[in-house]
Amino acid sequence: MRVLFLGAGSAATIYGLTPLATAARNAGHQVMMAAPRNVLPDIAALGLTPFSVTSTPIPHFRTRDRAGNPVTVPDNAVEGRLFTGGWFGRLAAASLEPLLELAEDWRPDLVVGGTLTYAAPLLAHRLQVPYVRHAWDIKDFDGIDPGADRELRPELDALGLDRLPDPDLFVDVSPPSLRPAGAPPAQLMRWTPVNQQREVEPWMYTRGERRRVVVTGGSRGLNFDFVKAMVEKVSALGVEVVVAAPEELAAKLRDQLDGVRAGWIPLDVVAPTSDLIVHHAGGVTSLTALHFGVPQLAVMESQDSASHGAALDRVADLGAGRTLYPAEFTAERVGAACRDLLENPSYVRQARALSEEMAALPSPSEVVGALERLVA
């Protein structure tokens, strides 16, 4: 069986798809992962075969329409979700022709697309093969798909479709307690943390004398000033601060902040030794914290990220973390939220309860059987 996985333009999307892709390969199937060229090194480093769908920088799709005209990020959540669907739709439109060319020589029996990789259902429909939608985090896509339908109207019309095709199977990595009301039927799968590795040092996998707080802006590092501000506000609590960030950003932090450990630190190694993870509302980071039963504080940098806040609000509602929206990003609020999360043991209990719930879900190797049945 040939299985084509489709990721998007950040390493996080690749990490989310890797456990199932690796399980399919280990089961003896041929596996290829297609994505924008900027993340091909991430795919290759994880031992999978990469294929480039576009060399256009990902920010281009977010900031420009198809004609190259500038677009503006909306300032409200509803329009923000439609906007997200729109720019992922533009990425899909640019990806479709290279994928069809690939399929002429390497025809997949099954297409597995990450949550917002809208080229996947279009390609599967053209090839008349099953399509699997694979959640790469806990963020729901309610209100996003219509933006992609609108952006991809030319492609849908050419295929005689009113909207994007529904998947033949939806693989969801959310524990049942975090699935939103009205969530579509799904094949649930255990979340497996994946990230790029480096040689570890003893302090990464052992606890020190002080409580440890990990601060991260994700695999891309995001805005330097945003990450620096989070580090400064957390450091004031007298805890050990570890910053997981790309080396370029980490070097700037080490130059400007004394006594802060910063660098490309594998989150799956340092998370089990941590008391709190403060992050940029990243879906992969959030799931990794939950996997290890660590409380979390999700800080929304912008309205664009806040449009995905509902999923992280559910984590907060279950008592496993807290969220702060852009207007709440002040030194006082961050400090108060971190103190609460560190001092109230109920957050640890709830985070560990979700961790146990996740551990009971089917493994990626078990879910490969569901893929095989689709093709059979």
Rank of each mutant, 00 (worst) to 15 (best):
F88P: 00
A119V: 12
L354S: 09
L287G: 03
W87P: 01
W203I: 14
D340S: 14
T84D: 01
A336D: 12
E79I: 12
W106L: 06
D75K: 12
V111L: 09
V173T: 13
R261T: 15
F292W: 10
L100D: 04
L312G: 02
A135S: 15
F224E: 10
P70K: 10
S174H: 01
G217M: 11
D258R: 14
G16E: 07
L297A: 00
S307E: 05
L267A: 08
V270C: 04
Q296M: 05
V112M: 03
S286W: 08
A21L: 11
P154N: 00
E343C: 00
R314G: 03
G182N: 01
V200N: 04
L169K: 07
G319A: 11
R190H: 07
R150C: 05
D166C: 00
W106I: 03
A351K: 07
S174R: 12
P193H: 08
D75L: 15
W264H: 14
Q197F: 07
G7N: 01
Q256I: 03
T117V: 14
V111T: 05
N26L: 12
L312S: 02
R107K: 13
S365D: 15
L267R: 03
Q256V: 04
L342P: 08
L188N: 02
A236F: 03
R352G: 00
Q296I: 09
T285C: 09
Y131A: 04
F170V: 08
V3H: 04
D313Q: 15
T13K: 02
G143I: 10
L102Q: 12
L267T: 11
P146D: 07
T192N: 03
E151P: 02
W191G: 00
Q256P: 01
P41W: 13
E247W: 15
H29W: 13
R64Y: 10
A44S: 15
R352M: 08
T54M: 04
Q256A: 14
P59L: 06
A12V: 10
D268H: 15
V368S: 04
G238S: 03
P167T: 10
G85K: 03
F88W: 07
G321W: 06
A12P: 13
Q303G: 15
H125V: 05
R373V: 14
G282C: 09
V132W: 02
S95P: 02
A21H: 07
A316P: 13
N344Q: 14
R107W: 08
G218Y: 14
A360N: 07
S286T: 15
V214H: 02
M204W: 13
V78W: 09
K252H: 11
S305R: 14
T72Q: 05
R210G: 00
G86F: 01
E104Y: 12
R352H: 08
